[in-house]
Simulated assay, not measured.
Amino acid sequence: MKSVVSETRGMFTKSRGINGFNNRLFTVLVWGISGCIVLFIISLLFLILQKGLPYLTWDFIIGLPSEMEEGGGIGPALFNSFYMLLISLVVAIPLGMAAGIYLAEFAPNNKLISFVRICVEGLASVPSIIFGLFGIALFVEMFQIGLTIIGGAISLAFLNLPVMTRVTEESIRAVPGELKQASFALGGTHLQTIRKALIPAALGGLVTGICLIAGRAFGESAVIILTAGVTTSGEMWDFNLFSPGETLAVHLWYVQSEAIVPDAVSISDKAAAVLLFVILLFNVLFRIPLWIKDRKNR
């Protein structure tokens, strides 16, 4: 009997030793891969920022672009980027959140809704140039308004609408069901439960979704080229929705591939640094409310 117990104990100890080694090996592997990814991202950011950020000047940021002479700026293109981003977010966020909340809370569980979800997921992965072609068909050919800021902004909203819808639906579904039931038990209506319980609890996922679509819209070029053009009106603060709407990403592409200015490389380096810096700034600014909320909850 003692020999059987000793043999069993030895086998258990050996198995535990092998599992412990595998666990440590897997941990080292995961940490190593994660470290390589982080190092790659930091190296990429440093490479782009160090080429352009130290050479930025205020004149370059607010200056008008030049077609022939060196020393042009990115002012109108940068303004158009923020202007079109604002318009697209105003359209995409409310509609995307409303659609996501409907799919998560109100939509019946049938084949039609399943098909709608498949369509939304498919649209979220469609190449952006398809939305650009749709924008041409809608704004240029049907409405015949030409290449404009409003056409580019609405096309960007269409591009980001499926992503915002899916992020909202998944964020709402990830909220624990006990929280929803507690709200109902306290006498809250379905609308009050969504406003006061589900949305605040899902705020982290919603902010992540907004960061994703904001960064995608600010850095998008294919949709803008097809719907808003590759030129600006030549004015720094042009709020006319029917003006041509070249953005910073489009200007970067144009300078790098088509421009004949002598300092094209310098302009593209500085424009890339501004573009990357703004996108990083978006992620920080959008997460400030979450940090404040977490500190209040502690």
Rank of each mutant, 00 (worst) to 15 (best):
W253K: 01
G204C: 02
K293L: 12
L186D: 07
L45C: 10
I118Q: 03
A185C: 06
K51N: 12
S125G: 13
V230P: 00
A217P: 01
E246M: 15
F139Q: 00
I172V: 15
V126K: 08
L147Y: 14
N109T: 07
L206S: 05
K296M: 07
D59G: 13
D263L: 05
L226T: 08
G63S: 11
K296Q: 11
L56S: 05
M97S: 09
W58G: 14
I288L: 11
A271L: 14
R195Q: 15
A98Q: 14
F218Y: 12
A217T: 13
N110S: 01
M97I: 15
L156S: 01
Q181S: 12
V38T: 15
P262N: 00
L56D: 05
Y102I: 09
A107I: 06
T231N: 09
G205K: 11
L112W: 14
W253R: 02
K293F: 07
G52T: 08
L198D: 03
T57Y: 06
G32V: 06
T8N: 11
M97F: 08
S243P: 00
I292K: 12
L290I: 12
G146M: 05
L123R: 07
M97G: 01
F46G: 08
C119S: 07
T13S: 14
G75C: 06
A185P: 02
G229S: 05
R295Q: 13
A197E: 10
G32E: 03
I87L: 04
S233R: 05
L198V: 09
I41C: 05
S268P: 09
S243H: 03
L64S: 08
L252F: 12
A271N: 11
A201D: 09
I199T: 05
A107F: 03
N160W: 00
L147F: 15
I74W: 10
V230E: 02
G152V: 02
A222T: 09
A222W: 04
M84K: 06
F158V: 06
L25Q: 15
L248V: 06
G35C: 02
L44C: 03
A228C: 10
L276N: 02
V5K: 14
K180W: 07
M236Y: 13
L64Q: 15
L64F: 10
L44M: 13
T8H: 09
N297G: 01
A271F: 04
F106M: 09
G100V: 04
G100A: 05
T13M: 15
C211R: 13
S66V: 06
R9W: 14
T165C: 11
V274D: 06
V5G: 00
M164P: 01
F239E: 04
T27R: 15
V4L: 10
N80Y: 08
S257W: 09
R295T: 09
P54L: 05
E105S: 03
L226I: 07
S15H: 12
A98F: 15
G187F: 07
G177S: 12
A214K: 04
R117T: 09
K111E: 03
S66L: 14
I213M: 10
I136K: 03
L281D: 10
